[in-house]
Nucleic acid binder design. Sequence first.
RNA 1: ACUACAAACCGGGCUAUCGCCUCGAUUUAUCGGGGAGGAAAGUCUGGACAGCAUAGGGCAAUGUACCGGUGAACAGCCGGGUCUUGUCCCGAUAAAAUCGGGAUGGGAACAGACAGUGCCACAGAAAAUUACAGCCUUCGCCCGCCAAAGCUUUGGCGGAGGUGGGUUUGUUCCGGCAAAGAGGGAAACCUCUUGAGCCGGAAGGGUGAUGGUGAAAAUGUGGGGUAAGAGCCCACGGUUCCGGCAGGUGACUGCCGGGAGGGGUAAACCUUGCAUGCUGAAAUGCCAUGUAUACCAGCGUUGAAGGGCGGCUCGUCCGAUCCUUUCCGGGUAACCGGGGAGGAACGUUGGGUGGGUAGGCAGAAUGAUCCAGUCAGUAAUGGCUGGACAAGAUAAAUGAUAGCCUUAUUCGUUGUUGCUUCCGGGCGGAAUCCGCCGGUGAAGCUUCGGCGGAUAAUACAGAAUCCGGCUUACAGGUUUGUAGUUUCU
RNA 2: GGUCUCGUAGUACAAUGGAUAGUACGCAAGUCUCCGGAACUUGAUAUCCCAGUUCGAUUCUGGGCGAGACCA
Length: 131
Amino acid sequence: MVKKFTLNKTERLKRRKIIEQLFSEGRAVAAFPIRVQYKLVDQLLPVPLQAGFSVSSRNFKRAVDRNRIKRLMREAWRLQKAPLEQALQTKQQQLALFLIYTGKELPEFTLIKEKVDVVLKKLLQTVNAVS
RNA sequence: ACUACAAACCGGGCUAUCGCCUCGAUUUAUCGGGGAGGAAAGUCUGGACAGCAUAGGGCAAUGUACCGGUGAACAGCCGGGUCUUGUCCCGAUAAAAUCGGGAUGGGAACAGACAGUGCCACAGAAAAUUACAGCCUUCGCCCGCCAAAGCUUUGGCGGAGGUGGGUUUGUUCCGGCAAAGAGGGAAACCUCUUGAGCCGGAAGGGUGAUGGUGAAAAUGUGGGGUAAGAGCCCACGGUUCCGGCAGGUGACUGCCGGGAGGGGUAAACCUUGCAUGCUGAAAUGCCAUGUAUACCAGCGUUGAAGGGCGGCUCGUCCGAUCCUUUCCGGGUAACCGGGGAGGAACGUUGGGUGGGUAGGCAGAAUGAUCCAGUCAGUAAUGGCUGGACAAGAUAAAUGAUAGCCUUAUUCGUUGUUGCUUCCGGGCGGAAUCCGCCGGUGAAGCUUCGGCGGAUAAUACAGAAUCCGGCUUACAGGUUUGUAGUUUCU
RNA sequence: GGUCUCGUAGUACAAUGGAUAGUACGCAAGUCUCCGGAACUUGAUAUCCCAGUUCGAUUCUGGGCGAGACCA
């Protein structure tokens, strides 16, 4: 395991069917202003962890702002997701999840980083609880 | 130098670390190349491209509208015309206001109001071609003055007519009916006359100047003219139509002649000319995946549909059936063979319904392309020559952190330019004052820098098939032009 | 990506180019009542924004902003 901080195409959630399942059956964890919808899936993914990112166009009218928030979330996720990935690999589990920004103001990178850290710790607990 | 306006352009750069998308190379996990905009936005327009439709024409609908050019095309752009408006100057008058001319900016959805229909609140007599009031006149009536014929007792009487003023629909006028009389006719009835009745209506003309309201009131000013008035006539203007001549490709302009004065609104309906077939990349084509052996419909079930493979006009292999009934033949019968009908099952289909699958490739990045030079053109734009290849994502890449540079603002310090005041010196004058020269002098303000620190880099905004334009948003900066103010030469 | 629709009081809706922009519910004050409700009386509150056409714009036209619907 040489590379650690990657986030390429295979590590992003893109399949419509899984996304629909995720939102109809999955569970949620929140740390305002970030909300995470997640679901454990069996042998559907080529990698242990896939993530998607989303911002409501109702809260942010301009595409520039939405793009920026998604970029910030993606960056924070990329830098901090390694422990969760490790845990999933040892447990032989696969997790699909979606990060949604629910705030209404443009955030700073440090805030996003903190909140993503909080969310990651919560997720790690639930993953460890699964036998 | 500053300020304002207009136009054009730019829209931070570099390095390190960690990452993202894509293309290429190979040693298969590394290296190298590329990676948002002037508006990528709004989706307001014009096309390219694709599918479907389509003999031709018309109606409808939508858009558009001065002229010429430009261009693939346009509601764009360029140039011109007309109208309108701001500023300045000149002229008309004593001034203001107004009018005319010129210069220089801005704006115009800028076809038609004489094709037709509608609307124009309130106010006003009236909102579109007409009435009302008013003015003038005719006919009545009343009053004053003058007064002809005639009469006469010579004093006058008389009162046609003229003239001035008043009155303003009545005792007046008009129409119809009844009645009476006369005439005609066989009669019905018709015609004429009369009119203290009844009913109805109020006069005949001229005029459009006056009416002060309104956003808007029928060509402005002056004069003549008339019963009163009026483009009724005249002079100087203005609007508009027609014809001619001249200039211009044309819109249009100038001159001459003749005619007309009947508002506004077409971003009211509408009329005229011109344009448009409809739908949009979620178009469209291909491949893969996938379900049901569902339901409906068609076809087929023994050399047969269909499928697999290959050396693919062919070969080879695989390949979906039973029941009921009836007819014929055979048999004692069970039953056997052949044919028909019905049903079910099975197979199959470029079919329909429903359901399922939902990923990739093409479309789709070399084009009405961009840059430089040059030529033509007032310009938009076009021709030629040379060079360049410049994002291609799809739950949607182009980012995060740190440092430096650069730029802007501000603070401190230091130098410097100019001005003012003070201090001190010299010269001149009769001068407790004034003028001139002038200082490694001081203080204040100011110009331009150097060094250091702090702050900020920020505006509007993110490609989604591609181009032309329009519209809208935009911190800060640069350049050019115009106008104004100040200083110096 | 594309095609459309709509913005009027706090809310739901009206209004032919011409009024002080109307109706209902709601809100506020008063009358009545011991208090409240009901009833009655009175009042406040609005044309999304900017231009244009017109004598005059909620209405017509253009642009902007916002809200909503639809298209495999």
